[in-house]
């Protein structure tokens, strides 16, 4: 490391305090910028059509109204509960699949040796290197051949292999003491039982993290559902949101109310579970 030289310690107290103040001001401004789009969205969703259309626009709604939400929730072309349901089915199924298989294979990769292990592990890691855009075309063709286009199953069936999940769980499982497993073996427990009652509890935090991250990814996924689900009633929230906003390009108040309904619930889920998500990202050094 480069040699570090410092000027002698003669900093005036005042200058230090000014520095701290600057940091706080900077952070305040930064977090306002981070929150501004959300605020602008929520405020617009409370405005009337004419108010949104006026030039230049107002910031605070002149006469806040929930009419836009009423319009959306009663719009027969927009059965929101159906789209929530589609998104939820896909996200939850994929969480269960990804968590289950990743737990098992991550554990096996960490705690067992078998011929071809290195090659298989490197293949798994390598699949993470391949951009999704490469495999989406054949992926689509496979689903088409199987007749799974336009079916929620089509978005679930291929998700049981989660390279990221296997990798994440493996990193955690490496720290399970081998003695613990061997002791169970001596007691005559079957391997499946050992996995179920000894390894799984140890992997709990990793699996919680993986589960939350998988949920977020699937809930927000856009491109792959856009390709696989072509029928309006089968689609998921992000696709519907984009559809609605192009349909009402000049009725921004409606688009923003729809955005609030789609975005805000998931932000609450995040606030409740952020501990796990943040830890998962930090520990794995990976992103979605």
């Amino acid at each position: 490391m480069a040699t570090i030289t410092f000027r002698p310690a003669r900093k005036s107290e005042q200058r230090l305090r000014f520095g701290r103040l600057a940091v706080y001001v900077f952070l305040l401004v930064g977090s306002l910028i981070a929150l501004l789009p959300f605020v602008w969205m929520i405020l617009a969703s409370l405005k009337t059509g004419p108010e949104v259309r006026q030039i230049p626009p107002s910031f605070w709604p002149e006469a806040p109204t929930l009419d836009n939400y009423r319009t959306i929730l009663t719009d027969p072309t927009l059965p929101l509960s159906l789209f929530y349901r589609n998104s939820a089915i896909i996200a939850i199924s994929n969480v269960i699949l990804a968590v289950g298989t990743s737990a098992l294979f991550g554990y096996i990769f960490a705690k067992f040796d078998f011929p071809g292990k290195r090659a298989l592990f490197w293949f798994i890691v390598a699949t993470m290197m391949i951009p999704f855009q490469v495999t989406m075309i054949p992926g689509y063709l496979i689903l088409a051949k199987l007749g799974l286009i336009n079916k929620l199953t089509g978005l679930i069936i291929g998700s049981a292999f989660n390279a990221f999940g296997i990798f994440l769980v493996r990193q955690f499982a490496l720290s399970i003491p081998g003695e613990m497993l061997d002791a169970a073996r001596v007691d005559g427990a079957s391997e499946w039982r050992i996995f179920w009652s000894i390894a799984l509890p140890q992997l709990g935090p990793a699996l919680a993290t993986l589960g939350m991250m998988t949920f977020m990814w699937n809930w927000n996924a856009y491109l792959w559902p856009l390709i696989v689900l072509t029928e309006q009633n089968k689609r998921t929230l992000p696709i519907i949101l984009n559809w609605y906003s192009t349909q009402h390009s000049n009725q921004i108040q409606l688009t923003m109310a729809a955005s609030v309904l789609v975005i805000i619930p998931i932000l609450f889920v995040f606030l409740l579970t952020q501990r796990w998500i943040v830890r998962g990202m930090t520990l794995s050094g990976m992103k979605g």
Binding site: Y140, A144, G147, I149, N150, I227, T230, E231, Q232, T246
Partner: peptide, 17 residues
């Protein structure tokens, strides 16, 4: 919707759905 419809026809018709 219109854009989706075009895409849907193009993808569903080969897929037979």
């Amino acid at each position: 919707d219109y854009d989706t419809y075009i895409q849907t026809l193009q993808t569903s018709i080969p897929a037979g759905t």
